[in-house]
């Protein structure tokens, strides 16, 4: 049983890591095809990617869309969670359900609905349209995370602040936000990652200015190329760097 466990662990890790390792290794391929045999190391493809203007613009677009849409989703989610946590309103359960509902619907369907509505009201496919879509998918997530973090202890602290005469914005900004900081941060980074990596909404709702996943997608049409490997490896590297930084700073205290 003991040996079997290790063999199984090894087998599955091979399966899990195989594509990523292959991706990174062949991004250095000194040749036109990212398949064996490995012909030697070159940084040519990385240089090519980094000097590709369309790619860099897409990267910048992705960052902007992810940043703004996550901030928007976070704000809406935070306000809604603190509202629903403070009083029991008639229809509270229904409101919670309504806010969570988009989570149960495929991105493709959300994108299709928005595309039709934007067509009707004359909003062209754009980064703005994509951003709106990303808030729709991330709002439930932010709301759920923050709402789950407001327990009895937090509720009484908020009530105490109000009883001591704090105005509503002061309660939110000076008491609730600092108190809920870990879950606000978690919600923000999760939303950011989802938006950053989201493809189908961005694919349907952008046209000329595109986000990174859409740009990578159009790259795939030309078949396998070490250049695509290089882009993928770069995205991978950046995400890992962010995770490591978060792990070392933000989440250090909460985890053991």
């Amino acid at each position: 049983m003991r040996y079997l466990s290790w063999v199984y662990l090894l087998a599955l890790f091979t399966f899990i890591l195989l594509p990523v390792v292959t991706l990174v290794v062949f991004s250095f391929q000194d040749g036109r095809l990212p398949v064996p045999p490995f012909k030697g190391v070159t940084f040519e493809w990385y240089a090519k990617v980094l000097s590709d203007r369309a790619m860099m613009e897409a990267l910048f677009n992705s960052l902007i869309v992810a940043l703004l849409s996550s901030l928007c989703a976070l704000t809406l989610g935070f306000l809604a969670a603190s509202g629903l946590a403070r009083v029991i309103l008639p229809g509270s359960a229904l409101m919670r359900g309504a806010l969570i509902a988009p989570m149960t619907v495929s991105y493709l369907i959300i994108a299709l609905g928005l595309l039709q509505m934007f067509n009707q009201i004359g909003l062209r496919p754009s980064l703005l349209a994509t951003g709106i879509g990303h808030v729709v998918i991330n709002l439930p997530l932010c709301f759920a995370i923050i709402y789950a973090a407001i327990g009895e202890h937090q509720k009484s602290a908020l009530k105490a602040a109000r009883d001591l005469g704090a105005r509503e914005w002061q309660v939110l900004w000076l008491v609730a936000a600092p108190m809920l900081m870990p879950s606000l941060a978690a919600a923000f980074f999760l939303a950011f990652t989802f938006s950053w990596d989201e493809f189908i909404i961005a694919f349907l709702l952008t046209r000329f200015d595109v986000t990174l996943p859409v740009e990578i997608w159009s790259m795939l049409r030309s078949g396998l190329s070490p250049e695509t490997n290089a882009v993928g490896s770069l995205v991978f590297l950046v995400s890992i760097a962010i995770v490591v930084v978060l792990e070392l700073t933000l989440f250090r205290k909460g985890s053991k």
């Binding site: 309103l89 806010l99 619907v105 369907i109 709002l139």
Partner: peptide, 30 residues
């Protein structure tokens, strides 16, 4: 109590509106 409720509603409204306009309406249209 009534004031608390009103403020609660005010806090939830933006998120609900967003969900209504950009999720429920497009879905109904679809």
């Amino acid at each position: 109590e009534a004031q608390e409720k009103r403020q609660g509603v005010a806090l939830v409204t933006p998120a609900l509106l967003w969900t209504l306009v950009f999720f429920a309406v497009p879905f109904g249209a679809m």
